[in-house]
Simulated scan of single mutants.
Amino acid sequence: MIERRITTELNELLDTYPAVVLTGPRQIGKTTLALSIADVRPSIYLDLESDADRAKLADPELYLDQYENKLVILDEVHRLPGLFQNLRGLIDRGRRAGRRTGRFLLLGSASIDLLKQSGETLAGRIAYLEMHPIDGFEVPQSDLTRLWARGGFPDSFLASSDRVSQRWRQDFIRTYLERDIPQLGPRIPAETLRRFWTMLAHYQSGLLNAADFGRSLGVDGKTIASYLDLLVDLLLVRRLEPWHANVSKRLVKSPRIYVRDSGITHTLLGLATLEEILGHPVVGASWEGFVIESLLAAAPPGTQGNFYRTAAGAEIDLVLMLPGQRLWAIEIKRSLSPKAEKGFYQACEDIQPEKRFVVYPGSERFPLSAGTEVVPLSELGQVLSGTS
């Protein structure tokens, strides 16, 4: 059992709000985490993918009103988006009776933005929290390479062998394409979406060019945008937007695209072992995506993540705007003897960050130049967590 850092934050939100939505991809450990909370709080659990449990909610207020003094955990809540309206009445009645927090824990596999649309009627009564795969700060330094190679889905990371891990990820991809996505409504051929997802893995950390993808798949740019929106909404792909500062430079306007889990990236590319990954051209981009996901997971709430790139070649892999308008510039290197290119220093001159870091897979922290430090991923995560 890996202790998830998000547990503390989730409990704090349950002690503050009547309802909390916990989002994240399927198989990421949301249900396991929720049930661990149910072990210490009086609770009931309903899985909305179960016909029997959905039948209990034919009249939601009538059924749930009898559990006024328990935490109600509703899994896969996006299956019943109309439920949010009913929860409002229950929450307001509970408030009048003195029960102001910890009424509902709602688990969903869609993005926070999608669920917020459904939950607009609960404004002021609900908090949203995104659960990420296991990240680089939740495992020992000695397990970091295995985590990067296999990815952060618990069953993949903890598998008994690389072969078993790869098989789990293959099944995960197939299940999403053939079962989960059609349940959400889009009628996209599974093979077309697999090809697109695989293309994104090949272009890991690249700038989005919808026209190029469209020509490869035989569809137009708007269709590519809809495919991408779907994978972003399912929390499987990250669209990292460019940083737009008040600088007199021609800035790149296209977002960068990352398959969010490094293990899924490797499986889409047919890479089953660390040796195969290290010998593939995607190795640097895969490590970059892994570091970005870990840092964004560890960043304090309200942190904004972007990249910076000018037409002249000045570039920063990750720009973090921390609460309080504190700006950090982060360069990501796979090498054990990392160096920052001229473009990084030029970009830092443009945006004047408070701190400058070069992240690498080593274990020592040392200065690289005036104002720039080389830091291990695990140490930067501790620094970042301490800024909240």
Rank of each mutant, 00 (worst) to 15 (best):
S226G: 07
T265G: 05
E373T: 12
R41H: 13
E178M: 13
E293D: 15
E379Q: 14
Q325M: 12
L147D: 00
A297P: 01
L377I: 15
L230W: 02
R88T: 01
R88P: 01
I316T: 02
G108E: 01
L327H: 09
L268A: 04
A347I: 03
L105P: 00
R356D: 02
H280M: 15
T16V: 04
A285P: 08
I292N: 00
P255H: 04
D171T: 15
G136L: 08
T8Y: 07
V283K: 13
A190C: 13
G214W: 04
S109Q: 05
S248A: 12
S369I: 06
R100S: 06
P376G: 09
A272E: 11
R326N: 10
L90Q: 00
V358W: 00
G151W: 00
Y258A: 03
R215K: 15
P300F: 06
E293V: 08
V374H: 02
A19Q: 06
T7H: 10
W148I: 12
V383E: 10
S248R: 13
N246Q: 14
A285L: 11
A299N: 06
G29K: 01
A329S: 10
K116N: 08
D65F: 06
V252F: 03
E76Q: 12
A340I: 05
E49S: 14
E349M: 10
A38R: 05
G313A: 12
I181K: 07
R150M: 09
L368N: 10
H244N: 13
Y345E: 10
G98W: 04
S363L: 09
A19P: 03
Q85L: 04
T372P: 03
L184V: 13
A299F: 03
L368I: 14
R365I: 09
L235Q: 06
I224D: 00
F344I: 04
T121D: 05
I91M: 01
D229C: 02
V72A: 07
A149L: 14
R88S: 02
L13V: 05
L106I: 07
H244P: 02
L177W: 12
R239N: 11
E68F: 03
L230G: 06
L327Q: 12
P189D: 13
L318Y: 02
G270M: 05
A329T: 04
L231G: 01
I126W: 00
Q117P: 01
E61S: 12
S216W: 10
A149E: 05
L22K: 02
L122G: 00
L83P: 04
L268T: 01
R334N: 14
K56N: 13
P281L: 14
E9T: 08
T223W: 02
N306K: 11
V164A: 14
A190G: 13
L322C: 09
I134M: 08
Q204F: 06
R96C: 02
P361T: 04
K333R: 12
L327M: 12
D53V: 11
G302L: 10
V219Q: 07
S142R: 13
E130G: 08
F366Q: 09
Y308P: 00
L46C: 10
V139R: 02
T273P: 03
S378T: 11
V40R: 15
L230T: 11
R5Y: 11
D155H: 11
V247D: 02
N209M: 10
S118F: 05
Y203V: 11
D317C: 09
S43I: 07
S142Y: 11
T192D: 14
Q166H: 15
H266R: 11
K70T: 12
W243S: 02
T101Q: 09
L57W: 06
K249R: 14
L184A: 13
